[in-house]
Design a protein around this nucleic acid. Structure first.
Length: 423
RNA sequence: GGUGAGGUGGCUGAGUGGUCGAAAGCAGCGCUUUGCUAAAGCGCCGUACCCCAAAAGGGUACCGAGGGUUCGAAUCCCUCCCUCACCGCCA
């Protein structure tokens, strides 16, 4: 949520930053400004009424204490009360309209975010490692999975419909191994606190981390829209400290959490849907940071580096791209995507998205900290998936397939996996 | 799921219809005095929003949340949420 004061004081700046995303947000800014002006007018009038009512009511009390007659004042206050009721209704309505509008305006892309219209304009920031060489054409993860019985899409569909996957045997073990490997890496070597949060969260949490109200059709809701299956651990973990005022010394807070993630993937039929690349339920290990504003960019770079360590440790070739202003997510000001090389797809696969939300989520969550001068200021929030499991799984088995059809387990993973190969 | 108790400012804790944004104590900040690692006295000490060009200042709201009664609600009524205790059920 953007700061209404920023919109009020610098509307042209806000509009010009939003314009870099494309879309019609400038119009929403004008709407919110109009509502804001109306709201404040109503609020001032209402407060004047309340002040009169309060003052006169006290006079009634004083008059009665003296044993005097107060019926005339009582009549006046009753009249003010009638006027107030209408103002209360109008003010509340204006407040709600303003909030609805604000919740539907996306974050301002950071000044350093590259300009662009679509994913085609996302610059490559850096690459790591080399594409592996294969004697013949490498198999893709679907073929490898079928051959080695690593997952069973048909039976998962029988259980839950299309877009669900069931890992089996060595595949299930490899999946579990990757989760544990990442949790250990981030807790032992990068200083994150492991949390195992609820996966079912209240509506407020989904608003806090910007999934709602705009993307409700992509979420699985229960209990008449009061509860939702988390689409990422970002939701429960970032909301852990919602409506709190943290001490400056506590920052940055660094969390790592494993969770299954539930997404309807509405409207994405046909895009990267082969095999296990886009499913309605998948496992993910998520990184979340809560930082002071001064440090959020440095912490963002560090978080991205921590996510990269996973791919480096597994010896997987990847590249880092930065999302351009036209492609960046609704709530994010600056985002790096990690894309791992998939020999089977002969393309890069997005496995991790590291975003700096600045104070956009913190305002929605009312998440603040007390700074050195004792002022309460909004925190900055960052998150990056320490990698979406099925895609990492797919890239990993494709990159490590051997001429004899077996899969070599990367060295660092072997102690976790309890073996050096799958055959 | 049942029964009972309870949710007040950073903390403890008063307050059952009016002068209560809320006593008192603790913690914190400032000043004064005396001075050896401290005591005493005094003052300050919540958040959000609105008005004001701004500062100063003024105002409104907030005693778990939301409604209601009333001229007036921390206080009375209703609903909900949460915490604690015990009981039931259960991985």
């Amino acid at each position: 949520m953007l700061d209404i004061r920023l919109i009020r004081e610098q509307p042209d700046f806000v509009k010009s930053r939003l314009a870099t995303r494309g879309g019609d947000d400038a119009q929403k800014v004008d709407e919110v400004l109009a509502v804001d002006a109306e709201r404040r007018k109503l609020e001032t009038a209402l407060q004047q009424c309340n002040a009169d009512r309060k003052r006169l009511s006290k006079e009634i009390g004083a008059a009665r204490a003296r044993g005097g007659d107060s019926s005339e004042i009582e009549e006046r206050v009753r009249k003010i009360g009638d006027e107030t009721a209408e103002l209360v209704r109008q003010t509340a309505e204006a407040e709600e309209r303003q909030r609805d509008l604000l919740l539907n305006i996306p974050n301002l892309p950071h000044a350093e975010a590259p300009l662009g219209k679509s994913a085609a304009d996302n610059p490559v920031v850096r690459t790591w490692g080399e594409k592996p060489n294969f004697a013949g054409a490498p198999l893709d993860h679907v073929a490898l999975g079928a051959k080695l019985k690593l997952f069973d899409a048909e039976r998962a569909t029988k259980l839950s419909g299309s877009g669900f996957i069931c890992f089996t045997g060595a595949g299930a073990r490899l999946e579990r191994t990757l989760i544990q490997f990442m949790l250990d890496l981030h807790t032992r070597e990068h200083g994150y606190l492991e949390v195992s949060p609820p996966f079912l969260v209240r509506r407020d949490c989904m608003i806090g981390t910007t999934q709602l109200p705009k993307f409700e059709e992509d979420m699985y809701g229960l209990e008449n829209g009061e509860m939702f299956l988390a689409p990422t651990a970002e939701v429960p973990v970032t909301n852990l400290h919602r409506e709190e005022i943290l001490a400056a010394a506590e920052l940055p807070k660094k969390f790592v959490a494993y969770s299954p993630c539930f997404r309807r993937e509405a409207g994405s039929a046909g895009r990267e849907t082969r095999g296990i690349l886009r499913v309605h339920q998948f496992d993910k290990v998520e990184l979340v940071k809560i930082t002071a504003p001064e440090n959020s960019h440095a912490e963002h770079d560090a978080l991205t580096a921590d996510a990269e360590r996973v791919l480096q440790s597994l010896g997987l070739h990847y590249r880092v791209i930065e999302l351009c202003t036209g492609d960046i997510g609704f709530g994010s000001a600056k985002t790096y995507d990690l894309e791992v090389w998939s020999p089977g797809q002969n393309n890069y696969l997005e496995v991790s998205s590291c975003s700096n939300f600045i104070d956009f989520q913190a305002r929605r969550m009312n998440l603040r900290f007390k700074d050195a001068e004792g002022k309460n200021r909004f925190c900055h929030t960052l998150n990056g998936s320490g990698t979406a499991l099925p895609r990492l799984f797919a890239a990993l088995i494709e990159a490590n397939q051997q001429p004899d059809g077996s899969i070599r387990i990367p060295e660092k993973l072997q102690p976790y996996f309890g073996g050096a190969e799958i055959r």
